[in-house]
């Protein structure tokens, strides 16, 4: 049923991944960084899915489910950290959270 060439889907995944990476690199607000990470995870899932579809295997979709689980866990912990950060440091600036250095 899939008539989409795999290269196109992979290209889309690459573009989305790059956008997410730019977001992580540029934004300083933790919320935006987390959102960008979501985008990147999604892009990775898309790549898996495209490859799975290309070979007619279910493994790609299984991998997407796993990525989903990872993303859910990551977001829950990440947002909790963001809340804690705000309470303690009064900011969401990711550059300000550097107490662990040295």
């Amino acid at each position: 049923m899939s008539a989409i060439p795999m290269g196109y889907a992979l290209g889309l995944a690459a573009i989305l991944f790059a956008l997410g990476l730019v977001g992580v690199l540029v934004r300083r607000n933790i919320i935006f960084v987390l959102a960008s990470i979501e985008v990147m995870l999604n892009a990775a899932g898309l790549a898996f899915l495209a490859a799975g579809a290309r070979w007619g295997r279910a493994d790609g979709q299984v991998m997407f489910v796993f990525i989903l689980a990872v993303a859910a866990a990551e977001v829950s912990v990440g947002l909790a950290i963001a809340l804690k950060c705000r309470r303690h440091l009064g900011t969401l600036d990711i550059d300000a959270i550097s107490k662990l250095k040295d």
Binding site: D95, I97, L100, K101, D102
Partner: peptide
Amino acid sequence: LRRSQSGRLRYYVAAAS
């Protein structure tokens, strides 16, 4: 090397990429 350990997450990400 401790210079590289700035504690800034974005630099780490940049280095990784």
